[in-house]
Design a protein around this nucleic acid. Sequence first.
DNA 1: TTTCGATTGACCAAAGGTGGACGAGCATCT
DNA 2: AGATGCTCGTCCACCTTTGGTCAATCGAAA
Lengths: 320, 320
Amino acid sequence: MADIPVDLARHPIGVVVRRTGLKPDLIRAWERRYAAVEPSRSPTGRRLYSDLDIERLVLLRQAVQAGRGISHAAALDKEQLRTLIREDRPTPGPARLLPADPWNGQVTAEAVLASCLSAVERLDGIELELQLERAAVALSQIHMIERVLVPMMHSIGDLWQQGTLRPAHEHLASAVVRSFLGEMRSAHQPPSQAPHLIVTTPARQHHELGALIAAATAATEGWSIVYLGPDLPPEDIAAAAHQRGAKAVALSITFPPDDSRLADDLRRLRRMLDPRIQVVVGGRSARHYEAALKEIGAHPVADLAEFRRALAKLRVPSSA
Amino acid sequence: MADIPVDLARHPIGVVVRRTGLKPDLIRAWERRYAAVEPSRSPTGRRLYSDLDIERLVLLRQAVQAGRGISHAAALDKEQLRTLIREDRPTPGPARLLPADPWNGQVTAEAVLASCLSAVERLDGIELELQLERAAVALSQIHMIERVLVPMMHSIGDLWQQGTLRPAHEHLASAVVRSFLGEMRSAHQPPSQAPHLIVTTPARQHHELGALIAAATAATEGWSIVYLGPDLPPEDIAAAAHQRGAKAVALSITFPPDDSRLADDLRRLRRMLDPRIQVVVGGRSARHYEAALKEIGAHPVADLAEFRRALAKLRVPSSA
DNA sequence: TTTCGATTGACCAAAGGTGGACGAGCATCT
DNA sequence: AGATGCTCGTCCACCTTTGGTCAATCGAAA
């Protein structure tokens, strides 16, 4: 693996916004008021953030979400932030010991990805799980998802098409990633009056990875998740939303580029749902259904950052 | 472990509220009236609680819940509070944060099952997970599987057919049970030269519950599990078995009472597999394929006990 | 030219602090 | 029994601090 030292890679603020889910104004305010991060500058004064800066911002965001004041959090270093966040999780979870790390000290998403792929090739699910768990200690959840899990599943898909890997490899990786994401989600215990979010895939959509990612992400944002797995007809989605008094429904659409029954299902869902319940739709194939989505007033989201922004908007009933 | 001295870590009242479950007004009232805790202050007068303060508040809350007056409890120190709480509670269980035990003390499979079903009815996945985790502490893994998980999924199936529950309930329960079984499995780490067991379901068999149960069970028996998820064609099963040098393959067959393609697949698997690799087949529909199983010399198992016995036999190369 | 980013200053909602009042529940007194 | 008073959780009015957001303006990039 090529070594681009993490602390040298420079990103403009736009990238940081996408990777952290924070608004640009807020990032600058944090810098101005509390020196929360101190990015270097381009010759013309543009802020240039390192990967470490971004990581730090993610940690700060988590700390704030856990009820800390930013003024307090900004004074802490990376390790202190991490322990703080860990402590704020109400269920400390089984204090598992994680011994020796192979990529000593420096943990980059790329290195983790490589180890993981190698574990998959060897069909070593236990090793894969171990790598992921170790990496999760060092990498933010967003990094884990966007730079490790998603690229890994993509690579496996590619290698499968090339004939290098077999379905068995993909199955094994899916099983491990699924349970890993499940743990990620349930590690966050929602605040007591958190709004409920139904997460599922519409009928005939059997890939649940996107839904799991959405669930884990929304959990970090403080939502209370009702995860219903894949392949659910609209009647059931609506019924579940009403029973739990959900604030919103998140759907992941990954498979067929075109399916008129799916568009029908979406319309049907909208009709059966309380108008106050919002619908958010993401996933690889979501854009193929733009028309139907617009028709039912659903929020289409193209990536995780957008999903997080949509969630933030939904919490405050101020969106149109 | 990073070192933040316990008595120095300072938390704003919001965090204390989350960790103790007390309302902010009440915390302040206790301080004002009884000096129950005496948090330090920020330069601007905000209260800053130490970890010890929080611990003390939790103890106070428990004492009050047990019927003590706060004015009395507030005068006691930590140790006195602890003994007091211990006396008041018949169950000597570990002083949990935010306790709420429905079946206080006595944990029976039936009681757990009832709580779980109620959680499913309410579509409360978090609660379901919590119940299962609590129960897992008190019940053996075998009990958990045979007396809680399996009956629960059966009941849900029945209630679904009756129309009392909807697919959404079943989906939710499946998702939680799946991840629970996954954790069960990965909690055991196999001894270094444990024999490998491939666990999966044949092609077109989408129900993975049986396979997950088999994986979790075999893991307790000291096998090293290669879990490949559901729906795998025989070529892949064989390839995986060879790549990992597996000692045996475990298949779960639950769905169609009769499928000639499945019988074909089984025969094909046997042909492609090293003759030394054993095949074990279980699941609800396994008995419908007795002929094919006999033909390929597979061990059919009717229940978990039999499965464990089969596993034990396989470890010692003495079977016929 | 349009979009992105930086700066500044202002605004305002949310969180927190203080003091006080209210009222349900319970024990005590006449 | 009824009146009285105490305990203690809750609520409110009013203030300060904190911190997220916005608008206006300008320079740099695409």
